[in-house]
Design a protein around this nucleic acid. Structure first.
Lengths: 194, 194
DNA sequence: CTCGTGAGTGATTGGTCAATCACTTGATGG
DNA sequence: CCATCAAGTGATTGACCAATCACTCACGAG
């Protein structure tokens, strides 16, 4: 094993890798229809050990979701630093570009979609609210934009989720063009081929 | 064959009521975690009979989804007739008002959210694409709006879904106000209390 | 009456999955 | 050399669920 690492105990390090696996696997099939065994297999540990690292399935899902929103905020900050001092609309535009780049692999985005559909589980609803609150507050204070500008920013983010979920960027029909016109989109780089 | 009764054979009539139940019940807990037995119970028939009326669970879900999008288009048409001859932006605004009224009970909206999260089932993905295509095409041709106007219309529809899912209309915090500002919202009338 | 048919159900099957528990292994230190 | 503790697993339990099938019941036609 790769012991002798001081800061994280091996169990904490394992938790980190399991959360990373959870993001990938939950993003594919959602909360209810993803068995813990699928996450365990992806992380190359036994299902039983997942339950030693997390008290229940929902706790693992929430941990994955929290990290997801953290990565989003990091990406927004990234876009903002590139446009320091510019008008709010320009800062928000740069944030949008960073976000578009971030969700190129679809995992962070699909996890959000699945989380929003699983809000009948109280812990998940709470985590999504927390995440949206953080993202909205950050976008507003960091860009200095008006509420209406921030609202528009979030609305088009949601539209972007729909377009990606349905894979509409390649559809060559009038209605699809209306929806995708001007929306930034990074072509998905090929995923794992197991 | 059938007695020339009213319009529908009893089995077809049953199918209609089961689809209505399916909208309500699938809207609450989604595709994967809603057992057919829950729909059957709501429709007051046995689970076995549901499978005589529909070949598989996914077929019932798709039937519910199709009816959902049909009801949406009917509502949009309703808004449009009230603003005939006016500018596209006004027609779209009226459509938005009709839509806000339609989803007051949350079922039609939550069903869409759950469907968008269940797009890993090909039949469901196809049904959602079909529905979004119809709604977008209808909004564009009936209002005569530009692609950009229609895109904005759909984007704010998606934002509305997020707000309703998270129940943000009553949240008294700055970030929540930014998101809900100016979004029409009909207070949910009390549901069933069994 | 009785035959045929469509409506509707009970019971079962085969499978999946969250969660638990008893167990093994390996490293560390006295 | 042994005691201890963390890492990690196999096996099992108990519940749930999609789908199937054999069955009953009511009713109209001949």
């Amino acid at each position: 094993m790769t012991t002798q690492r001081p800061h994280l105990s091996t169990a904490d390090a394992r938790r980190e890798t399991v959360v990373a696996s959870a993001i990938t696997v939950f993003a594919r099939s959602g909360y209810a229809s993803t068995p813990i065994a699928a996450v365990a297999e992806h992380a190359k540990i036994s299902p039983a050990y997942v339950f030693k690292l997390f008290p229940a399935k929902v706790a693992l899902f929430v941990a994955a979701l929290d990290r997801c929103y953290q990565q989003i905020i990091d990406a927004l900050e990234d876009g903002a630093t590139k446009t320091d001092g510019q008008a709010p609309a320009d800062v928000l535009d740069a944030m949008g570009a960073s976000y578009a780049a971030l969700i190129a692999d679809r995992d962070l985005m699909m996890l959000q979609v699945h989380a929003q559909a699983a809000t009948d589980v109280p812990e998940i609803a709470e985590a999504v609210r927390r995440g949206i609150a953080r993202v909205t507050s950050f976008a507003q204070s960091r860009s200095g934009g008006s509420p209406a500008e921030v609202q528009r920013f979030m609305a088009f983010g949601q539209l972007c989720h729909l377009l990606t979920t349905l894979d509409l960027f390649g559809v060559d029909e009038p209605w699809a063009h209306s929806l995708t016109e001007g929306i930034r989109h990074h072509a998905e780089q090929g995923g794992e081929t197991p």
